[in-house]
Amino acid sequence: MDRNQIGKWLRSPQKMSNKYSLHAVYFCTGCGIIEIPPSITTRWDAERFGIIPAPNPRQANLFLITGYVSLKTLKAIIRTYEQMLEPKYTVGFGSCPINGGMYWDSYNTIKKLDKYIPIDGWIAGCMPRPEAIFVAVTHLWTLIEKDMATGYIKYRKNYKQYRANQEKIYGSLDWPPLYK
């Protein structure tokens, strides 16, 4: 620990612990997941920064969506996102979640993921290298520190709109609304 961080820890332990303890749900939707093993194992060792895979969404606060999002997986993504505990951060990995990528004209792929759940940051590229994940993480740290990673607040505020977008695809969802 840097000595100059002690003051920050004392001032806002919540923010600092959120920064340095990112437990991630790796949502293995597409080919992006292939970049995750090197980043959490010996070569790049994400655990240095406190990033480890979490066994389930209740224990995680970082949501990595790695690859294209089909209509079917979107449901699971929404469910998982809603089950994660606040504060939670979402990162779209690769170009597919951003704009559809190479599936830009596919009939059953979601083009803009942030219409359905809020995304705090994107990692562009097809595929991004593991280093890009770390760059993203450092960016996320900055965002957390400046109180700008507020996707979950946005989701709560504009829940009606998000829910309407979700229901536009599925007609009706199995589960009741998260917020009233």
Binding site: P57, R58, A76, I77, R79, Q83, W175
Partner: peptide, 10 residues
């Protein structure tokens, strides 16, 4: 009891 972890499904 229905808001429960089931690997993303309901």
């Amino acid at each position: 009891q229905y808001d429960n972890y089931a690997a993303g499904s309901f």
